[in-house]
Design a protein around this nucleic acid. Structure first.
Lengths: 187, 187
DNA sequence: TAGTCCCAACCTACCAGAAGGTAGGTGGCG
DNA sequence: CGCCACCTACCTTCTGGTAGGTTGGGACTA
């Protein structure tokens, strides 16, 4: 089956979002997929291979998701709210964003994985940046620094608030923070 | 020696800040402290005991550190900058804030630890909140929602930006984001 | 003051289970 | 026939944790 591979990636993604890279194991995956541990190694010889491919897949899939929000005609602040909602939705199942989860374990990763992580963040910032550039032009958003700086700040905020909200406050607190944050950037 | 205990906590703190709770092991600690693994268990029978006590210690020590900044007479935006600097300093040695690191591994922790984590965050928010209440009164800070909401937002931002900056951009990016964030909250 | 007792702090030696990973075999399909 | 996807069986290393022994200093007593 060609989509066993995808199934493995799906399960790995959920596990990483829930318990982190280091607590995620081939044993867990094999049980969830219904396949033997050695068979996972057939698809992804090393754990790093799995993580690396997952990071690539996320860059594509989430990138498309973010882009679909941004390409619409909504005012920039609404688009920020829609982006925040993606992170808020993760909290329903107590799950973090893949990049946030992996970034926290950065010091246990290979150089290659760190590089992919950097690319992933840069790529996401570049996408988010469009909202801020647009908002600045529209006059709906105001911030000091470049649109890239604002995008980086907003992404970091979302990742951090998701982590903190899962530990304390949940969805409601996440929402209050997102509202406050977006209004602080709005005019 | 009575401070072997403290030494263990010191090493555990650094390890958690660097690689996270799950990648931190009694073996690592024993090597760094210069004591046998079983001796760590003498001081902290279970790993949870260690983490729990560390979380308590941090609440006290960081709480005092935060409070010392906030009790000064600086304008609120300057105080926010000083708080941000604490998180920025961690990046020099590639280390995260203890609470941020542990929060990310929340789903692998005991109920008791989760509870302490919640208390720790609430307590920090309560301290940060004073800056925002003061800033609102002074007219130096403007935000929608309560001072607690703003404190929660700012703390989440700092934790998130520290995580993201360690993975991409480093100190410079952290600084740019903090500047933008504080200016978005300033009047 | 000497004896002894206790206890904290450390040690060696061990355990079971989980980790990532490998070797080599089997079955089915093009 | 050959190959892909899967299997069983196994390896090493690390994991948190336990059992039980050694040591040295403080306190209590004869």
């Amino acid at each position: 089956m060609a989509d066993t591979r995808e199934k493995i990636l799906d399960v790995a993604e959920e596990l990483i979002r829930s318990v982190g890279v280091n607590a995620m194991s081939y044993k867990h995956i094999s049980e969830a997929v219904g396949i033997r541990k050695a068979s996972i190694h057939h698809h992804f010889p090393k754990k790093d291979d799995l993580v690396d491919e997952l990071l690539n897949r996320c860059q594509t899939s989430y990138g498309a998701h973010y882009a679909s929000i941004i390409e619409g005609d909504d005012p920039a602040p609404d688009q920020l709210r829609n982006l925040a909602r993606i992170f808020e939705d993760g909290l329903v199942t107590n799950k973090l964003c893949v990049v946030g989860s992996i970034s926290t374990d950065r010091n246990t990763l290979t150089d290659r994985t760190c590089e992919l992580l950097e690319n992933n963040i840069s790529s996401t910032v570049r996408i988010f940046s469009k909202v801020f550039a647009k908002g600045e032009k529209e006059g709906t958003l105001v911030f000091s620094g470049s649109a890239d700086d604002a995008a980086y700040t907003f992404l970091s905020f979302l990742i951090g608030t998701q982590i903190v909200a899962r530990a304390q406050g949940g969805k409601e607190f996440f929402n209050k923070a997102a509202k406050l944050m977006i209004e602080a950037l709005s005019r």
